[in-house]
Write a protein that binds this DNA or RNA. Structure first.
Lengths: 221, 221
DNA sequence: CAGGCTACTGAACATATGTACAGGCGGGGT
DNA sequence: ACCCCGCCTGTACATATGTTCAGTAGCCTG
């Protein structure tokens, strides 16, 4: 499996690279910095990935794989409370930060990922699945695009969101407060009242606890 | 005035720097690239700004000045249709792109600008000005923060928005379609129905014309 | 054990890039 | 006329950085 190999060498470098890329940008991150963060020599990075650009592509592919995996998992287990936002919560933090940076740094993977998210969002809105209403608009594609951009934008701006709210919105500490506000900002017609109330209750309990999401107790993994 | 001097040397460099910074990031942009784009020698950049970091700060200060000026202008002339979105539309395109990049590259100016936008948004929401309703929420600060992040996020992700919609959302070509969808995505309670209808009508006329905002009926092109 | 393969390292190299320096050009004041 | 001063340029230099190369250690296979 890929996972076994993941724990050794190559994967450590790739994970470190994702963090460094996210922190300093593709151009700002250095091979030496990545190697240092991974605890290996700079030459090993070249040995495994050859070039910096190839390393970047490896990160892209890994992110795509994780996202697809997470999406499938969410679809199987019935998509959670506020849809996309919940999915974003699940995916690993380094992946999110790398993706957020890639969206402004520019990468083919980020582009297709965004476009896929728009298509997925449009699909869900169209055939109102699980408490999702079909919005009354004459431009559903633009609707889905804007909705996606707003969701993704909250991840891209997580640093500023977190600073303004006083808690990291990418962790369970600041996430519920942000998500609750998002539920109020967005149009009520999007979700059925029951689903809204369910999501709100779930987020409020998360807010009170300040800890892990409550879905942990239902035991899916 | 400052404007006369703006046309010569120093200002050309600063404007070129904003574009280069926006395009390649602070780290990715090079002195030589900026000088080339401005049509001057790399040494002149040093002569005027001394160091790359100082040039960056000069860009920051200029952006802050432009934003403040635009905001004041918008406040005096009665803030336009959908509030912040309209303001964003007005500010010069290079400024927006530079700001969007700075928000993810990290800069003190971008941070304070975002925080100011949140405070301004909260202020408007609190004392419902000009058709703006006070939202029914028990966490107005988070509400204002999320609303601001969503608005700003649309600018930050303008490249992806534009690709998905097939038209540049930072120009009058793609903007109305995006703004119309945003009006539908956001909660109706935010603005009074009259203001919503007014904004929608204005945007639709802009969409039909596909040209400049209706405030200037002199059709060129 | 021999051989080879893979993970890994230190040193070296070429280029890109920020920065400093010395000087030229043109105008305005004495 | 002379000189000073701001705008501007070409060149040079030190460093950062991506990349290459030769070589070592461990391990598996024959």
């Amino acid at each position: 499996m890929e996972r076994n190999e993941d724990l050794t060498g190559r994967a450590r470098i790739r994970d470190a690279a994702m963090l460094e890329f996210a922190e300093h940008g593709v151009k700002g991150a250095t091979i030496r910095g990545i190697a240092g963060a991974a605890g290996v020599s700079p030459a090993l990075v070249q040995h495994h990935f050859g070039t910096k650009e190839a390393l970047r592509q490896a990160c892209d592919e890994h992110v795509i794989a994780v996202i697809r995996e997470t999406k499938q998992e969410a679809l199987d287990g019935g998509l959670g409370d506020p849809g996309f936002l919940a999915i974003a919560m699940r995916t690993a933090l380094p992946v999110q930060r790398y993706l957020a940076r890639s969206l402004t740094d520019g990468s083919a993977a980020a582009n297709t990922l965004f476009d896929d998210a728009v298509a997925f969002s449009a699909e869900i809105l169209e055939r109102g699945t699980a408490g999702m209403n079909e919005p009354k608009t004459d431009d559903l594609h633009a609707y889905a695009t804007v909705l996606t951009a707003m969701s993704v934008g909250m991840v891209v701006l997580h640093e500023h969101l977190s600073r303004a709210l006083g808690a990291d919105t990418l962790t369970a500490e600041g996430y519920p407060r942000m998500a609750l506000a998002a539920l109020e900002v967005l149009n009520d017609d999007l979700m059925s009242p029951e689903l809204v109330e369910q999501a709100r209750a779930s987020l409020k309990s998360m807010l009170a606890a300040g800890g892990q999401p409550p879905t942990r107790s239902t035991g899916d993994r």
